[in-house]
Computed example of a mutant assay.
Amino acid sequence: MVKKRQILVIGNNTKGCLPNHEKIAYEVGVEIAKSGSVLICGGLGGVMTAAAHGAKDANGLTVGIIPQNDPSEANEFCDIVIPTGMGLARDFLNALSADGVIIVGGGSGTLSETCAAYMHKKPMVAIRNLNSSVDPYIDGYLDHRENIKIVGADTPQEAVQKILELLSP
């Protein structure tokens, strides 16, 4: 059996998540499911809920890795819930569980997950022009080590296409 690709979607939680972020995240989720990949997210609100919802509507498989102990705290669109009880340290689990990452807006938590993925050289694609903490690094690197470029995309479809290209052997 061939392992399925696992794509992490990160971005704004409920606070700071605008309708535009939700629409884009939903479409990213649909495209991930259509590609046959597994959608991984932080399992909570905002971009996480919207992306998981999109993947579920497209008959995809979703995994929510939540910071709490109680699996009932995950959003309703997570097929598999991994309650870590680790709080913010779960950002590293999210990044390490993914083959690649798509970034839809976000604040400091998103930047934390981006840094974790960057340190482990996970391919990343970020949607441009969402006024996020990651915006200054799109089409560039987080630091002088130039571990992995954060590739920019203008649409959900382009973001998924680019991450799939980056993950191809």
Rank of each mutant, 00 (worst) to 15 (best):
Q161K: 15
L88D: 00
I138C: 03
G152H: 02
M48A: 00
A58P: 07
G64R: 05
E165V: 10
F77D: 13
E146H: 01
M1G: 15
G29C: 08
V104Y: 04
D139S: 09
L96D: 04
M124K: 01
G42R: 11
S37R: 01
Q6T: 04
N59M: 12
G11K: 09
L8W: 04
G106D: 11
P67W: 06
G85L: 07
V9M: 15
H21C: 05
A33R: 01
A126V: 05
V38T: 15
C115N: 14
L44I: 00
P169G: 12
G100Y: 04
Q161L: 12
L130Y: 00
V160D: 13
I7P: 03
I138Q: 02
P136H: 07
G85H: 06
G87P: 13
A25G: 10
V63A: 07
P169V: 05
D91K: 13
K121T: 03
D79W: 13
M119K: 13
A153W: 03
Y137M: 10
A98Y: 06
N13G: 15
V30N: 02
T155H: 11
D79N: 15
Y118C: 08
Q157R: 15
E76R: 15
G60Q: 05
A153S: 03
M86P: 08
V134D: 02
Y137G: 08
P19G: 09
I66R: 02
G43H: 06
M119S: 12
P67L: 07
P83C: 06
G36M: 07
Q6S: 11
A25T: 05
E158D: 10
G109Q: 10
A98G: 08
G109A: 04
N13Y: 15
E113I: 03
P169M: 10
V134Q: 08
L96C: 12
V30Q: 02
G54R: 02
K4E: 06
D143M: 07
T49L: 03
N131V: 05
Y141C: 01
T110F: 04
A95T: 09
A89Q: 10
T14R: 13
N12K: 11
G43V: 05
S108Q: 11
E158Q: 12
K56T: 14
N20V: 15
N59F: 12
L44D: 01
I32P: 04
D70V: 13
E73R: 14
L111D: 06
A58L: 07
G109C: 07
G45N: 08
D143T: 07
K34L: 12
K56C: 13
P123C: 04
I66D: 05
R128K: 07
A55K: 02
H144S: 14
L96Y: 05
K23L: 15
H53N: 09
A50Y: 10
E146A: 04
I10Y: 02
G46A: 04
H120C: 14
N69V: 12
M119V: 11
H144R: 15
S108D: 05
S132L: 12
T62D: 00
D70P: 14
